[in-house]
Amino acid sequence: MSSHDHHHDHNHDHEHPRLSELQLRVKALESLLVDKGLVDPAALDVFIDTYETKVGPRNGAQVVAKAWADPKFKAALLADASAAIKSFGFEGRQGEHMVVLENTPKVHNMVVCTLCSCYPWPVLGLPPVWYKSAPYRARAVNDPRGVLADFGTELPGDIEIKVWDSTAELRYLVLPMRPAGTDHLSEDELADLITRNSMIGTEIVTFPAKAQEAAE
């Protein structure tokens, strides 16, 4: 490398540091915690991989599809959601105290966490950006019908909308209504219709599925 190149690289680095302020803060914290033996770096990697690739809203969709197909399971799910969900092997952080909220022709449920972003990780993965945003957190409470409209969801005026505020102790999963015309579908086919947003309560499940969601 010529001295000119080197000089250029140096300037370049200076203008665009290789590690951002946030990266540096995390690296400092992580390396000190590892040095102290408070965290195991290998366990961190496994954990991150799990949340990036294995845990997501497909878990919740399987639970909902089974509840649609199997009335006994649905009753168990509504009675003790944590235990019923555990039977799928979906358990762990943020799933200890689950409550399932059943949508009916009279009541539509919607979930928010007004304080931070509590969310049922084992069944839905980690929350989408909008769930964590202040506008959603505020408007879900003040104007739930407006939020539904923003998501392209229109509900008849006589349906009551109930908004549930998650806490560190209590997580909610919405059991959406099974769409008409799906009697012939298998549980797996049903699961494919179920969107993440329908289990947060900002959408309803439609059949046939909207094009993009079917391709997911």
């Binding site: 995390v26 961190l44 949340y51």
Partner: peptide
């Protein structure tokens, strides 16, 4: 870094 902060 977001993932690391989350996992920590």
């Amino acid at each position: 870094w977001e993932a690391t902060a989350f996992a920590l």
